[in-house]
């Protein structure tokens, strides 16, 4: 797990900005050009390029040229950082799973339905 930690931090850091989260949301529907993304998010191209750089460096998105026209560059989501984040969230969920199991046992022992009469415990 420790090796994955820096990646998760870079992922969370990249996701800490609403504009960058907006880019991620938009790219869920498929690859788009930088200009299209900037337009959809109402950003100037210069301010937007900084956000794209953070996203590229985090590995969340990749820029590639279109097969039929090398001059056109599109952005697409990359799966690996999300897998890393997912793995880390699994740890968080396992923590809360253990807590809720304990909560359930305590709640049902103290407030739950009583065992039926006449039956052995």
């Amino acid at each position: 797990m420790s090796r994955a930690v820096p990646d998760v931090e870079a992922t969370l850091l990249a996701l800490s900005d609403p504009t960058r989260r907006g880019v991620i949301e938009l790219l869920r529907f498929g690859p788009q050009r930088a200009g299209e993304l900037a337009g959809a998010l109402n950003m100037t191209k210069s301010a937007f390029s900084r956000h794209l750089r953070v996203l590229r460096e985090s590995g969340l998105v990749r820029e590639e040229s279109m097969p039929d026209d090398a001059r056109v560059h599109v952005y697409s989501l990359q799966r690996e950082p999300f897998d890393g984040l997912r793995g880390w969230l699994d740890e968080v969920e396992s923590y809360w799973t253990l807590q809720l199991e304990s909560f359930k046992r305590h709640a049902e022992r103290t407030r739950g339905p009583k065992p039926k009469r006449g039956r052995p415990e």
Partner: peptide, 11 residues
């Protein structure tokens, strides 16, 4: 994507 969610059922 950054949300951890756990569900349980208690009687």
């Amino acid at each position: 994507a950054e949300t951890a969610r756990v569900i349980t059922f208690v009687q």
